[in-house]
Simulated assay, not measured.
Amino acid sequence: MDKSRWGKRIKAFRKLKGYTQIQFSDAIGVSLSIVGEVERGQRVPSEAFLERTVETLGIPIAELKPPID
């Protein structure tokens, strides 16, 4: 799994929905540093992180998954 591709998509959808990193981290119940690490591609998002992300952003998981090359 390409960590940076997950992070780029999460960041794009977060911004599209109007969340700052602080607001988003509060909404999904993780620290700001974890959100930053995921968005920078330094951490693979956990299953719980992804579940909370799609719920908070109101998108299906299929929209969030990076395309396969």
Rank of each mutant, 00 (worst) to 15 (best):
A12G: 02
Y19C: 03
K3V: 03
K3Q: 06
W6P: 03
R9T: 09
K11M: 15
S25P: 03
G7W: 05
K65P: 05
I61T: 07
A48H: 10
Q42F: 14
V44I: 14
L57M: 07
K11T: 09
P60Y: 10
I22V: 15
E63M: 08
E47L: 15
G18N: 12
I34E: 14
P66E: 01
A62W: 05
I68R: 10
K65Q: 13
V38T: 11
K17I: 02
E51G: 01
R52M: 11
G18M: 05
K15V: 13
I28H: 01
K15I: 14
D69C: 07
Q42G: 13
D26A: 15
Q42C: 12
I28K: 00
Y19H: 01
V38E: 13
V54L: 07
L57Y: 07
S4H: 14
A62S: 15
M1N: 08
G29S: 12
E63S: 11
K17R: 13
R43H: 09
S4V: 15
I10R: 00
P66Y: 08
I61P: 01
R43I: 05
E51S: 07
K15E: 15
D26C: 10
E47Q: 14
V30P: 00
P45D: 11
I10C: 04
V54R: 03
K11L: 15
L50N: 00
I61F: 13
K65T: 11
A48E: 13
K8C: 08
S46K: 05
D69Q: 10
G41F: 07
K15P: 01
K65D: 02
P60R: 09
G58L: 06
S46N: 05
G36W: 08
R40A: 15
